[in-house]
Amino acid sequence: MEKKSFSEKLKEGRFVITSEIGPPKGTNIEPHLKEADHIKEKVDAFNVTDLQSSVMRLGSLATCRLLVENGFEPIFQITCRDRNRLALQSDLLSASVLGIKNILCLTGDHTTLGDHPDAKPVFDLDAVSLLKVATDLMNGKDMKGNELDGKPEFFLGAVVSPGYDPVELQIIKMEKKIEAGARFFQTQAVYDLKIFEKFMQKIQKYNIPILGGIVLLKTAGMAKYMNEKVAGVSVPDKYIKMMADAKKEERPKVSIKIASELIKGMRGLCQGIHIMPLGWERYVPQVLEESGL
């Protein structure tokens, strides 16, 4: 039986699971591929981050190709921070010839937040215009309307942040992204199902697959930090308390419990989940198991 692709599964209405790989700072990619291998069977596709948090690392495109070669299905994250419109279009074409179909278009964190704050930020395009450009390429034209010799085929995705304030503003932009060609959305980490539910109600009309974001909590400190610093994230006090009360060795267990509770809650609300394990790849199978997936 031929394996179904990520986009086909979404089309069929299956509850899909994506996870992510953050390429290393250096060339040592092996351990990351191995980590991914642990959960290969459970996960439908792997996002590969593009210099996540503006920290210089191994490239997303090359890592995506390695995943293809190892039999995984990648989602190529591409940001506007580091490339102008020429490079962005070129990299999209490159992705296509390297067998990468799933593209997640992002604006990207600002350069000053990473490990090269002195770098020149590019932001020639943004997430919306990048999606539009990718759509144009699929139609055989570049940004300026020049004819392409061979056109790529993509399954385009974008991100949205349900916990953002004011959320209407995110939704307006989301609508633009859909208009520009986004076919699925992954979200920022969700910890509050009530907020998420409200968000889902508001965007129901778009009838577009949403993959709810899951980030495994490691400590109470991490939760507090995210509440304070990370955009669109608010961890409810009850989870912070659960993490704070847990002994060190019990923390993964508690964390898995929280994550699976959230996933169970999301199952009725959205079309899939996107797990960002941030180094705790080994616990992902357990999370999925406890969630009944």
Partner: peptide, 10 residues
């Protein structure tokens, strides 16, 4: 980021 089409999520 001089974005023209709406905010980033940051």
């Amino acid at each position: 980021k001089s974005l023209l089409n709406g905010p980033c999520g940051g």
